[in-house]
Each structure stands twice: as C-alpha cells, then as structure tokens.
C-alpha cells in the first residue's frame, strides 16, 4: 500500500461530485461500481468513505446531471444504476476545466522558486 492520503469527511463536496461524474462518464454503473473503480484506478490511494458517495449521487441526480433506474445486478440483486446525462457531461467538462485551472494554480504556488518580498 502506498502513501494513503486519508481523506476526511470534509473532502470538498465538489471534488467528490467531480470524481463521480468522471467515473460515470465511462458508462452507467451503480454506487459500488463507482467506489471500486476509484479504488482501482487510484490504487486505493484515494480512500473515499464509500457511504458518502450516496448523498453525492442523489444530489447529482436531483440536479439532473445524472438519471437513475433500477435494475438487476449480475447476481440478480436489486441495484440502482446511475447514468450521466448530457447536462452532466457539460457540467463535467466545465468542472474539470475549473479543477485543472485550480490545480495548476496550486501547483504553481507549491513549486514556485520566487521568494516573496516579505520572506526573511
């Protein structure tokens, strides 16, 4: 296990939404699938409290960025599947670009070699 960045419950709600939207942009899935994919892709580095996915999913659905339907899973159990909508894809694109700018800015600050004027 690599360096686990333990995420607290205060993980920015927006960031979680972004992760969910991106995951679902690959295709419809249920909550467990989303958790597993994030786990697999990040090598379990990003420990998301899996329960918190559900308020996020429901909120996104309320905002019409996702739509849901009930189906039967591979082993015939009742599961709720979420699918990204066109509006959701737009939101994803816009959020991703914001995130990109944000991370660029943070990285710029973190890697800057320029000493500020007030430093001793």
């Amino acid at each position: 296990m690599g360096d686990a960045v333990s995420t607290s419950l205060d993980l920015l709600q927006g960031t979680l939404d972004l992760l969910v939207l991106k995951t679902l942009s690959w295709g419809p899935a249920h909550g467990y699938d989303v958790a597993r994919w994030i786990q697999d892709v990040t090598g379990d580095v990003l420990r998301v409290e899996e329960g918190s996915l559900y308020p996020a999913l429901h909120r996104l659905e309320k905002r019409k960025l996702l739509k849901s339907s009930w189906g039967l899973s591979r082993n015939n159990r009742r599961a709720k599947y979420y699918e990204i909508t066109a509006k959701g894809r737009e939101a994803l694109a816009s959020e991703a670009s914001t995130w990109s700018s944000f991370t660029k800015a943070v990285t710029t600050v973190m890697t800057s070699a320029d000493r500020p004027g007030w430093a001793k």
């Binding site: 909550g31 467990y32 899996e50 329960g51 559900y54 899973s73 159990r77 009742r78 599961a79 709720k80």
Partner: peptide
C-alpha cells in the same frame, strides 16, 4: 429504496 441501495453496496463489499 435507499436502504436497498446501501444494503446492496454493503453486501457487495
């Protein structure tokens, strides 16, 4: 419905 959804995830894990 919500209980079913959470229960499914729980059971899968």
């Amino acid at each position: 419905d919500v209980d079913d959804e959470l229960a499914f995830h729980f059971q899968a894990r």
